[in-house]
Design a protein around this nucleic acid. Structure first.
Lengths: 111, 111
DNA sequence: CCGAATCCTTTTTGATACTG
DNA sequence: CAGTATCAAAAAGGATTCGG
């Protein structure tokens, strides 16, 4: 069975959606966007309530995909923060409109 | 294990994203949106190239979630078509901007 | 043609325990 | 605090088969 892609762009959109949907990706982006400034691992985790395993995996994927920036601050003791990249900030409105849509419509997603 | 949601709206957005991401949901919505008119099961399937199991599951979920309308035409033989609901058409722009973003940025999603 | 049911494989998640 | 490694459980996809 040959996997024939009708539109190669679909594949990339799918990859984005696949990443965004992996549990808590959206949470992370929305929280970082709302906060407006870099946050620490523990702060993110405390607001999302998922396993550190998953949070760490998501942050790693988001970072490697260029959506999140990881910074190590040379303080004592050192502090690690995560913030949105420029690209991610451009994507935010799309997520926000989707957010607004679901809020307004009061639709009931049934899976 | 109590799942404590920090923001109940997040949960609904997550459900939407979870639905949209289940393989081929986005394809279905984009194809129906581009087509601009209801399509038959076999036509959708032919353009997506996934198992009928998955296509059927997605269409069922999208229908129950109020994003897709299923119609049985009383012709002979009878024909079944799927089209976007009003709600889905309002959501389309959000998906489209996400689509545009990924196209423009040429970003490389790494999962 | 349009699916539902079954069964199997792959993917993803989370709990736990352990480092610097 | 900020993670990684491991492993078991759960979720999701797909092939196949069958029926209206």
């Amino acid at each position: 069975m040959i996997e024939q892609d009708c539109d190669p762009v679909f594949a990339r959109v799918d990859k984005l959606l696949a990443l965004l949907n992996k549990s808590k990706s959206l949470h992370i982006l929305l929280i970082l966007n709302l906060k407006g400034q870099p946050m620490r691992f523990s702060t993110i985790k405390s607001q999302i309530n998922s396993s550190s395993t998953t949070i760490a995996r998501r942050l790693g994927e988001l970072e490697r995909s260029g959506l999140v920036e990881r910074k190590i601050h040379p303080t004592a003791p050192s502090v690690v923060t995560y913030g949105l990249t420029e690209d991610a900030r451009h994507l935010a409105p799309s997520i926000q409109s989707m957010y607004d849509w679901i809020v307004k419509r009061d639709i009931n997603i049934v899976i």
